[in-house]
Amino acid sequence: MITIIEMMNVTKTYSNVVNALNNIDVIIEKGEFVYIVGPSGAGKSTFIKMIYREEKPTSGTILIHGSDITNLKENRVPYLRRKIGVVFQDFKLLPKLSVFENIAFALEVIEEPRDIIRKRVMEVLDVVNLKNKARFLPQELSGGEQQRVSIARAIVNDPRVVIADEPTGNLDPDTSWEVMATLEDINRHGTTILMATHNREIVNTVKKRVIAIESGRIVRDELRGGYGYER
């Protein structure tokens, strides 16, 4: 197995507050699909942000695909992010760019030639089933469609891992399943997926590895777990 993400003894302290994350040890292998669950404010977001280096750990070591990003220089951060696709609850699409342009943007950044960009964008639009919406603006799409565009953007440059921070948080149940199906599809093609979620139904139905974080600690790590926190 190839290790994609490895955290050793990772602690994150924000000024004044108690530890947001406390001595986290975790290994995520290539091709895994992992849910990160836990109550709000437990540290899920911090956990995820440290992987694509929006946050820096206070202590400990983080390896991404074998390379240590703990002390990554500021000007190397963009190159790390090109290996990681990120999907957000609020989609974070550029409102004035078309669907095509939004996805192409991730490739323009790495200076791919135009013809390759065109080809790749059409490929991923096919994967997320939005080929006929390429010229639309984000606001002309439904929430589920917008989230699929953001997934397409996340996978367009073939990242080693896709991180989804509550991707279904803003969607109704039906569209949530749509998005979930797309993520599973991508996972089947070998991309590692890390998904922070509050969606009990999805976690309990599509059984995957579940990491539960509470008060900054990993309290549960099951290979085919459920959501827990049943009322």
Binding site: P78, Y79, L94, V109
Partner: peptide
């Protein structure tokens, strides 16, 4: 601001 943040998240260098 949002736009710039998104650019950073998809791995655009500051120069870009």
């Amino acid at each position: 601001q949002n736009e710039i943040q998104i650019m950073k998240l998809v791995g655009a260098t500051n120069g870009f």
